[in-house]
Design a protein around this nucleic acid. Sequence first.
DNA 1: GAATAGATTGTCT
DNA 2: GACAATCTATTCT
Length: 218
Amino acid sequence: MPPTRHDRAYELDERGSGRPLPRSFFAQPTLTVARQLLGKILVHASPDGTTAGRIVEVEAYRGPRDRAAHSRGGHRSPRNESMYGPAGHAYVYLVYGLHHCLNVVTRAPGVPEAVLLRALEPIRGLSLMRTRRGGAAHPDWQLCRGPGVLCRSLGIDRTFDGRSLRGGRLRIVDAPGFAAPLIRRTARIGVDYAGPDAARPWRFLVAGVQAVSGKRIP
DNA sequence: GAATAGATTGTCT
DNA sequence: GACAATCTATTCT
């Protein structure tokens, strides 16, 4: 497949390589990491081929005091153990018995905070994404629109839980961010059970991007 | 375009 | 046995 305009713009080579982000990037406060992840690129170099997309929507989950987080009240179990691990590693879980969701762990080991990746703008391996989605004729902007769907398109499952995202087959590489005025905040999605924390504006997305979940912002 | 129901299973009470 | 950081198809308007 010939390189696309996006590949050159984001300096991805044939294997989807790029500059990794330092661990210090992921160890920052979770809201900072969430905002700064917008524009970075998630790459999965699988045996079937490489798929990649630019991060355009995320949500922050802020540990024991956040009643929407899996680590609320300091809860710790085999399922969410990765949230307690080092910054820059993955926390992958299954929701509703059907869909995988990918989080990026933040802060110091023992501090169970993370950023959920909710949508990507696809930039590489679009035909493989369509195959993984079951061969339906989805438009490009629908291929990674939503946390479960992006994992399906990129072939991400719980085998990546607890693994580093700064090297290996699944990784996040550096790329230019978005101008601050384009970044919007809203309440998080699907956390109505979380009482007062349901309303906190800890979802970050990019205005003018079609590939975000829910209603897009002009 | 908006609202609704159903899928499907690991995890926790 | 209840519920979940979701998605899709279907049935309205």
